[in-house]
């Protein structure tokens, strides 16, 4: 590692209340991947065999939309999007817990895989872990309503 990398880089955005800095970037990226995965799967399910399990596949589509919304909400700095982030991530938590439990207790109900079946085991349990991390992130990065977005690093637009 060179000195350049260990030293303070003036281009590095300052620590700010924005939710999309530092490790939050990683959270957004992983949410993006999951949104893509859920959208892709639900697209295939609905196009090729929607009649087989309208309930499970509608749920897949809903989950996909919520993941996309959550990804956007995490990148957007406003207080309104902060609320949307809580709602969507809370919905995911609820979804993965309810559908995960039901898929184990009554497998007949969810014969067709959704992103949340068996607590997201088809997705390395990422759907189960991610909302927890997301809520922790939101809790520790509450928007400062008195000082709205004074430090918006230009790089935020990158997402």
């Amino acid at each position: 590692m060179t000195e350049q990398q260990t030293g303070v880089n003036p281009q590095e955005p300052p620590r700010s209340p924005s939710r999309s800095i530092g490790i939050g970037r990683l959270l957004i990226a992983v949410y993006g991947v999951l949104a893509l995965a859920a959208t892709g799967r639900s697209f295939v399910q609905i196009v090729s065999r929607f009649d087989e399990a309208p309930l499970a596949y509608s749920l897949s589509a809903l989950a996909a939309v919520v993941y996309v919304l959550a990804t956007i909400a995490l990148t957007a700095p406003s207080a309104r999007w902060y609320r949307v982030a809580w709602i969507t991530i809370g919905f995911e938590m609820l979804g993965v817990l309810v559908v995960g439990t039901l898929s184990l207790v009554d497998p007949a109900l969810f014969q067709h895989a959704t992103v949340w079946s068996v607590f997201g085991s088809g997705y390395l349990f990422i759907p189960l872990v991610l909302p927890v991390l997301g809520m922790w992130w939101l809790y520790t990065h509450r928007p400062d309503t008195h000082r709205p977005a004074t430090h918006r690093p230009a790089a935020r637009r990158a997402s």
């Binding site: 530092g22 490790i23 970037r25």
Partner: peptide
């Protein structure tokens, strides 16, 4: 699409997390 998106991200924002995101992709 994934490596392309991660690659552009890394070009726009040169931070350590962009490297992690390349790996995630």
């Amino acid at each position: 699409l994934l490596p392309v998106a991660a690659g552009f991200w890394a070009l726009i924002e040169r931070s350590r997390w962009s490297t992690v995101i390349l790996g995630v992709a």
